[in-house]
Design a binder for these strands. Structure first.
Lengths: 220, 220
DNA sequence: ACCTGAACACCGTTCAAGT
DNA sequence: ACCTGAACACCGTTCAAGT
């Protein structure tokens, strides 16, 4: 008599996501995922062939959290929202950024969101070439910002000031311009690196408008 | 009588860089580095306290390959060159992108290049706030582009076409806009994703000019 | 001071076995 | 079909020992 499976692939991935969120990629072992599911390490191998396949699935799970743009909405709002959603997903799961570099085959969620973004651009007056340029720029900005955010030594605006003040003596001597920017910008009350995202995003959206108008030398 | 050391910290890092370049971060084990140096695994621990410290050193070694801008040169050329140099360094060592996410304390090379870029902006009419915004945008674009480049399934323009042609049947059915962009852009003779870098870079530089002129709502 | 080798607690994964 | 447990070849790192 075949047993009812206690777990399935979806639960394996969900457990792995929790483990990674709590302890980072270093804590993500097959044994830890198994323990969270209350089974033996080898039980997992009925749902993912290898740990590498599990990592592929995990990255795609993160992409699945990014709400795709509506192809027929106003492009600037749609793309802006998609950029924000992507950045927030990567902020929730910063370990995914480090994984992305080594996984070269995108999953279904990644592809369908990719497709939706291309559709949004093509439906809104972007030529094929402009769409290609725009897409590269959008993702470069979002991924790069997320990577910078992940490498910040502190999270949120509060700790930022403390840390910077600790470092000021070193900074003042060896890095006068870093000291200046710390003193006059980063250490100002209310500063939050996260706010930089909106500023850069508007500039990127302006650049997309330039591409859309075909004012830029485009190939093909 | 104290022995002359056979190796030093610099040689350990250089050996580790070679191992990572050849086999990726998965191949980078303390034992592999030791073997390349012709010593025992534990000999390395006289020059780096832990593997984590070795990884920090490796990332900084990659940053050391990026030629810093000259603070007194014309900012657009200087920043453009620095962006290109950073992207090339990360292309040579794509595994470094994945490592960056988890290392929060920058090394000396990273800091001094950071400082040189800030100096270039401040010497060229960028306000403190504009410099902060510009810096975030520059690094977002460069890191994000490098990450995208690392995740491409193939390297260089040739293999690109082959791969895309293999995937066309799937694409046509499920992803019409990806199929379109593949057919009309990526599969065109002479296409190279690397060319997208220059297009996005010019747009980013235009955005920096906007920041420099103070035409954008800036905080503080 | 510098290096070695055995050992420990892990890890991903294979395999043979159980229901 | 689904799960288990022992085992294997690794890994980073500790420790005691050698020169």
């Amino acid at each position: 008599v075949p047993r009812r499976p206690q777990i399935d692939r979806e639960r394996v991935l969900a457990a792995a996501l929790e483990v990674a969120d709590e302890g980072g990629v270093a804590a993500l072992t097959m044994r830890a995922v198994a323990q969270r599911l209350g089974t033996s390490p080898m039980a997992i191998y009925h749902y993912v062939a290898t740990k590498d396949e599990l990592l592929d699935g995990l990255v795609d799970l993160v992409f699945a959290e990014i709400e795709p743009p509506s192809p027929d909405g106003p492009w600037r709002e749609e793309i802006s929202r998609r950029m924000g959603a992507a950045r927030e997903a990567l902020r929730r799961h910063p370990w995914a950024i480090g994984l992305m570099e080594s996984r070269t085959s995108p999953g279904a969620a990644s592809l369908s969101r990719h497709e939706a973004t291309l559709a949004t651009l093509r439906h809104n007056g972007f030529s094929v070439a402009a769409t290609a340029h725009a897409y590269a720029l959008i993702d470069s900005y979002v991924y790069g910002f997320a990577l910078q955010e992940a490498t910040l030594p502190v999270d949120g605006p509060e700790g930022f000031g403390e840390l910077a003040e600790q470092m000021m003596p070193t900074f003042d001597a060896d890095y006068p311009f870093m000291a200046e920017i710390a003193r006059e910008h980063v250490l100002q009350p209310g500063y939050d690196f996260a706010d930089e995202f909106d500023i850069g995003r508007e500039l990127v959206l302006d650049a997309l408008e330039t591409l859309r108008m075909g004012q830029t030398a485009a190939r093909g």
